[in-house]
Structure formats: structure tokens, C-alpha cells
């Protein structure tokens, strides 16, 4: 599975309790009400565990975690740094 699929699967199964159809990678997860901010926090922890990275303190921002695309971009940037 690629990053996008891994994230989609986690969000659907763990944060949306299996509900929801296809998730748009650009959809703003928090603003559209798909998950609440506690959900975002779980997502941050999941990303750390699943991809074996530590998100630096200053990077836990909405910009980096607001959509599947944003997280994917952020991970690419982190891994190439």
C-alpha cells in the first residue's frame, strides 16, 4: 500500500468507524467535520508509529495534517530532508 492508501484506510476504519465512501485526498478533514481535532491528534500518533518517524514539535500544525494530501506532502518533505 502506498502512503495515501494507508492513511485512507486508517481514517476510515479508526476515525470514521468504517463510515464514508471514497475520501478525497484534498478534503479538509477537520473543516469538513470528517474527524474532530482529537482525531487529528490520533492521526499524528498513527503517522509516527506507522512510518517510524517522530514529527518534530513545531510541525504538529494544521497545515501539515489537514488533508491526506497535506500529510503525504509533509512525509515526503520529511523523508527527503
Amino acid at each position: 500500500m502506498n502512503t495515501v492508501e494507508i492513511l485512507k484506510q486508517y481514517i476510515k476504519e479508526e476515525l470514521m468507524n468504517g463510515a464514508g465512501g471514497d475520501l478525497d485526498v484534498n478534503e479538509n478533514l477537520l473543516a469538513s467535520g470528517i474527524i474532530d481535532s482529537l482525531g487529528v491528534l490520533r492521526l499524528v500518533s498513527f503517522v509516527e508509529e506507522r512510518f517510524n518517524i517522530e514529527v518534530p514539535d513545531e510541525d504538529v500544525t494544521l497545515d501539515n495534517f489537514q488533508s491526506i494530501q497535506a500529510i503525504t506532502d509533509y512525509l515526503t518533505q520529511l523523508q527527503s530532508a
Binding site: 481535532s37 482529537l38 487529528v40 491528534l41 499524528v44 500518533s45 514539535d57 504538529v60 500544525t61 494544521l62
Partner: peptide, 13 residues
């Protein structure tokens, strides 16, 4: 300024 970071620090880190 950054409620998400704040919440993450309080709850988790």
C-alpha cells in the same frame, strides 16, 4: 496561535 500543537502536547507528548 496553534491550538492543534497545544492539544497534541497536552494530550499526548
Amino acid at each position: 496561535e496553534n491550538p492543534l500543537s497545544f492539544a497534541f502536547f497536552v494530550h499526548t507528548r
